[in-house]
Simulated assay, not measured.
Amino acid sequence: MNKGFVYVRSRLSSDEVKKLLEKLATEDSYYFVRSPHAVSGICMKLPDEFFPGFEGQMFDSDRELRWKKQGSAYEALLLSSVAADLEGFEAIGKNWEYCDRAAYFHDLNEPKFPKTFMYKGKNDEKIESNDISIGQRYFQDKRTATVQFVALTVRSKK
């Protein structure tokens, strides 16, 4: 097991969420944004037509940032394999451990969604889910060994 870090921040405006996403984005970041009526699919750039959306997540090999609308503001949750010093974020607990696991995609030939689920590259081109190296990161409380969060992560392509 590896040491994990969990942080939270409340009362963010949509502009603050966007600035936070820009600050944390890497070359290998992916986005998934949800509105009440649609989802963005997994995208390699923040989909303008969905942002800020009702909720979403950005993830890379180190962290997943989730945001969710709470009234007129947003709340953010950061699940990370590295310590972060971000303004306004507070650590939740001190005894987090994480382990990485594989993630598996739905077969696009057997859709489980009303519309085809999309995977988009940096130029909004369609990409195959097999070309995306995404995994899951399980965050558990070290004291109780209870998994509290499951984050998406980008796995190294070896």
Rank of each mutant, 00 (worst) to 15 (best):
A151I: 06
P111M: 03
F50W: 05
E128C: 12
R34N: 09
G93C: 03
F54N: 09
N95H: 11
I132G: 00
R143Q: 15
Y74S: 02
A83Y: 11
L78P: 03
G53T: 01
P52G: 01
T26M: 06
K112R: 11
T26S: 14
V33H: 03
I132K: 02
F54W: 06
E97T: 09
M118W: 04
R137C: 05
Y7S: 05
A145G: 13
K126G: 04
N2P: 06
C99E: 13
V8I: 13
A73K: 15
L108R: 12
D141S: 11
Y30H: 09
T146C: 10
A38R: 10
A73H: 12
F113G: 00
D15K: 12
G56W: 01
L152W: 03
Q148Y: 13
D100S: 09
K158C: 14
D85K: 12
S156V: 08
K126S: 12
N109R: 09
A25P: 01
D28R: 15
D48P: 10
K115E: 11
R155N: 15
P111K: 05
F139R: 00
Y74H: 05
K120V: 09
W67S: 00
M58C: 08
S129Y: 15
S81D: 07
W67F: 07
M44H: 08
T116G: 03
P114C: 01
D131F: 07
W67R: 02
V39E: 15
G88S: 03
R101V: 11
T153S: 08
D131S: 15
K158N: 14
T26L: 10
Q70M: 11
Y74A: 00
D62Q: 12
R34E: 12
K68P: 02
A102P: 14
G71N: 05
A84Q: 15
L77K: 08
D15V: 05
S14G: 06
S35K: 11
A84L: 06
G56C: 03
E49R: 11
Q140M: 15
G41E: 05
K157V: 15
K112I: 15
A103E: 07
K18P: 02
D15Q: 12
K23S: 08
A83N: 06
L46K: 05
D85S: 12
E64W: 00
H37E: 08
I92S: 05
G88H: 04
P36E: 03
S80R: 01
N130L: 13
M58T: 05
V39W: 01
R137E: 02
T26A: 09
L79C: 02
K120H: 05
K126L: 14
Q57F: 10
V150Y: 00
F5Q: 00
L108T: 09
V82A: 08
A83F: 14
D85M: 07
L65C: 04
